[in-house]
C-alpha cells in the first residue's frame, strides 16, 4: 500500500528527517548537495552530475601512514538520505553495489537511504526505458496533482513514512522516454568502422565518464605530509578515456588509441558488464551525451549498427538540433 503526502507538506517532511539524517538532494546548480533548507531543492530536472560522490568521494582516504605504521581509516558513518534520485540514478546505485566491495563503500551504502522520485520530465537525451531498469529504492515518490504517492521498497523506507496516511488509490507511472535504443546487440560489431567516425570526433576529455553515474573506476595514490613523516593513501576517479588509465610502468598504454578507449566506454556499458552481471551497466540517463563537447551520440551509432537507424536515429538528430 502506498503512503500519501501533500506536496506542500514535502518541505516540512524533509525538515523533520533532518533531525536524524543528513539530507542530500538535487539543487539549482544541477548537482546533488547536502541541504540545510528544503526550499533549495530543485526536483524538476535531472541533475547534470550524478550522486556517486556520496558513495565514492573524490580523494577519500583509504589508509593512513604514521611514521612506519599503516592504519586503516574508517569512513564517516553519517546516516544519510538521498532524496530526488530518479530511476536511472537509483539503478546506478544498484550497479555500483555490484562493483565496489570495499569497507568504505559498504559502510556508506549501508547508512544511506534512497528516497527516489518519479521522473516526470525526461529530456531528449534520456533513454532509460531501453536499459531494462529495475525498481530499486527504499522509497519512491510519485507526484500526482497536489500529492505525492509514495511506494515503499524496504523496511528502512517503511520506517520513514510510518506516520504518513495510507493512500486511497495506487499511482504507478511509467517514464515517457523520447529516445529509444531498441536493439543493443553490438558485440559482433566491435570492429565495425563506424566507431571510427565517433572516435575521430572524441576529444578524450573524459566528460562522459565523469558524469556517468555508473562509472566507478578509480586510481589509488599516495600523499605525503610536508614533514615527510606521515601520509595518506587515497582514492580518486579514473577515466578509461585517458591514456594513463591503462599505462603500465615503462610507459606502455594498452588502450593507446582514442578508438580503443571510446569503444571501451560503450562496450563496457552495453556488453562487458552484461556478460558478467546479466544486466546493462548503462542506465540511460543520457548524462554522457549531454556532457559531450562534440556531441557524440553513441546511441545513434548503435541504432545504425543494428539497423534501427530509421526507427529512431533521425528523430534524435532533430531533437539535437533543437538544443
Amino acid at each position: 500500500m502506498q503512503k500519501v503526502l501533500k506536496k506542500k507538506e514535502l518541505n516540512n517532511f524533509i525538515k523533520e528527517l533532518m533531525s536524524n539524517y543528513e539530507i542530500i538532494a538535487p539543487v539549482k546548480n544541477g548537482k546533488f548537495e547536502i541541504i540545510k533548507d528544503p526550499s533549495n531543492m530543485e526536483l524538476g530536472k535531472i541533475t547534470i552530475v550524478p550522486a556517486k560522490e556520496f558513495f565514492l568521494p573524490e580523494g577519500e582516504t583509504l589508509i593512513e601512514f604514521k611514521g612506519k605504521k599503516v592504519i586503516k581509516t574508517h569512513p564517516e558513518n553519517k546516516k544519510r538520505i538521498i532524496f530526488g534520485m530518479r530511476k536511472c540514478d537509483l539503478n546506478a546505485v544498484k550497479i555500483m553495489d555490484s562493483i565496489i566491495k570495499d569497507e568504505n563503500y559498504l559502510s556508506r551504502r549501508k547508512n544511506t537511504i534512497l528516497m527516489g522520485i518519479f521522473c516526470e520530465h525526461p529530456d531528449e537525451y534520456c533513454f532509460c526505458n531501453s536499459m531494462e531498469l529495475e525498481d530499486y529504492y527504499d522509497l519512491l515518490f510519485y507526484p500526482e496533482d497536489d500529492k505525492y504517492y509514495i511506494s515503499v521498497g524496504s523496511e528502512k523506507g517503511k520506517k520513514l513514512v510510518a506516520k504518513l496516511p495510507e493512500a486511497k488509490k495506487e499511482i504507478i507511472r511509467i517514464i515517457k522516454n523520447f529516445k529509444r535504443v531498441p536493439d543493443k546487440s553490438i558485440e559482433k560489431h566491435y570492429r565495425n568502422k563506424i566507431w571510427e567516425s565517433d572516435a575521430n570526433r572524441c576529444l578524450s576529455c573524459a566528460a562522459c565518464t565523469i558524469n556517468c553515474p555508473t562509472c566507478t573506476c578509480f586510481e589509488i595514490y599516495d600523499e605525503l605530509s610536508p614533514d615527510l613523516k606521515n601520509g595518506t593513501r587515497k582514492r580518486g576517479a579514473a577515466s578509461c578515456q585517458l591514456k594513463s588509465f591503462s599505462t603500465v610502468a615503462g610507459g606502455k598504454a594498452f588502450r593507446n588509441s582514442r578508438l580503443a578507449r571510446f569503444k571501451q566506454f560503450v562496450y563496457h556499458k552495453i556488453v562487458y558488464y552484461k556478460k558478467r552481471n546479466g544486466r546493462y551497466m548503462c542506465v540511460g540517463c543520457g548524462r554522457c551525451l549531454r556532457a559531450c563537447p562534440p556531441k557524440i551520440d553513441w546511441t545513434d551509432t548503435i541504432n545504425i549498427l543494428t539497423g534501427m537507424k530509421n526507427h529512431d536515429a533521425k528523430r534524435n538528430r532533430v531533437s539535437a538540433k533543437k538544443v
Binding site: K101, F218, C240, F254, Q264, Y267, Y272, Y273
Partner: peptide, 19 residues
C-alpha cells in the same frame, strides 16, 4: 599477462581486457 592492476580484486577497473 601484464596490466595495470591498481586494487587487485576487481574493483578499480584498470586492468580489464574487454570483459
Amino acid at each position: 599477462m601484464e596490466r595495470r592492476m591498481e586494487c587487485g580484486f576487481g574493483n578499480c577497473g584498470r586492468c580489464t581486457i574487454q570483459d
